[in-house]
Simulated scan of single mutants.
Amino acid sequence: MNDAVLTIAGAFKRYGETQAVAGVDLSLTSGEILCLLGPSGSGKTSLLRLVAGLEHLDAGELRIGGEIVDDARGAPRPPERRGLGMVFQDYALWPHLSVLDNVGLPLRERGRSDWRKAARVALEQVGLGTLERRHPYELSGGQQQRVALARAIAARPRLLLFDEPLSNLDAKLRDELREVIAHTVREAGIAALYITHDQSEAFFLADRLGVMRDGKLLQLDQPETVYQRPVSPFVAHFTGAAGPFAVEPLENALSWAGIVAPCPPDAALNGGGPAALYLRPQWLSPAEPGAGAVPGVVRVSGYAGDGWSALVDLPNGSIHLRLPQRVAAGERLHLRVDWDKALLYPRDHKR
């Protein structure tokens, strides 16, 4: 891509016997937020450290702004010469400096005479324009992370790197800060590579979303595509689908514990044989007993404000559902499935 801010081609990185990054290719354009989602050990942070210049490629090539910064042959370009801004879990603020000085110090060190003006603009963008004289110990955790974000964007870098920046905050602050990040980054028109293991965070922020496992990038696409059509059982399960439920494909249909249902369109099956069914909670709704209705038994339930949250046992598996009325443990119910959206894979799918 000619307008790519970041291009990674065939990236490999090994630590001893562990292949942390295994042949990753991706590109990122100006103003785009690309989120990488995956469990611990999936390779997402190792990839970010390669982009940051904190690690060196074993093989492959990495370009920022069209310039090679690491190609596994020579010495990589150091972090301070890559035009990056970084926001990590640890806010890394200087406790003896004011908010304004924390944001402006990197600019001062580069000899910017307008550092105060640039720092104040960044603080206004993150909603802290009135707190420039305070010190970090006078701020909440959410405010401290806003200062870290302001410091990262103050120099208007071409690329921002986020490594689990909200993982130390409570749920309410995470929701608030992800909105600040989305607005601030897009308003500034900066490309961002965002690493997280939090599904809701990734889906909310991403223009494109990648899912990693064992150092490999399994799927990279728009968030709605990853959600609606995950390429594998792992991607489906990691992004919140319940399963696998064992089913048997029939001609233009499938059998689930004696229930015959239509085969989902675009089912990822190659020939016959056992299959694995994955369902998202919103694809099931209460129904009257009858043909096609799936029986379930409530294992445990609790009030969730806008309904009842219940763990429901279905044939050969279980699923968490949000139900509109009170349900009790042991209660039996029947559910209608939106088969047009259901996900079906060969039972022996390897990815």
Rank of each mutant, 00 (worst) to 15 (best):
D25K: 13
S27A: 15
L28H: 09
L28F: 12
L28D: 08
T29F: 12
G31Q: 01
G31V: 00
E32T: 03
I33V: 15
I33W: 01
I33N: 02
L37V: 08
G38P: 00
G38H: 03
G38T: 00
G38Y: 00
S40E: 04
S40L: 08
S40R: 06
G41R: 01
S42Y: 01
S42K: 01
G43Y: 00
K44D: 00
T45K: 12
S46G: 08
L50Y: 02
L50C: 01
A52P: 03
A52W: 06
A52F: 06
G53M: 08
G53L: 07
H56D: 10
L57C: 03
D58P: 02
I64Y: 04
G65C: 13
G66W: 09
E67T: 15
I68R: 12
D70F: 08
D71K: 10
D71N: 15
R73H: 15
G74M: 10
G74S: 11
G74T: 10
R77H: 06
R81I: 03
R82G: 06
R82I: 04
G85W: 04
M86D: 07
V87F: 09
Q89N: 08
Q89L: 04
Q89P: 09
A92V: 08
L93R: 03
L93K: 07
W94S: 05
W94Q: 04
W94E: 07
W94K: 05
H96P: 03
H96G: 06
V99A: 11
L100A: 10
N102F: 02
V103R: 05
V103W: 08
L105T: 13
P106S: 01
P106L: 00
R108I: 08
R108V: 11
E109D: 09
R112D: 14
R116S: 10
R116T: 15
R116P: 00
R120Y: 10
R120L: 15
V121I: 14
V121R: 14
L123I: 06
L123P: 10
E124Y: 11
Q125W: 07
V126D: 02
G127P: 11
G127D: 10
T130D: 14
L131W: 14
E132P: 11
R133N: 14
R133V: 09
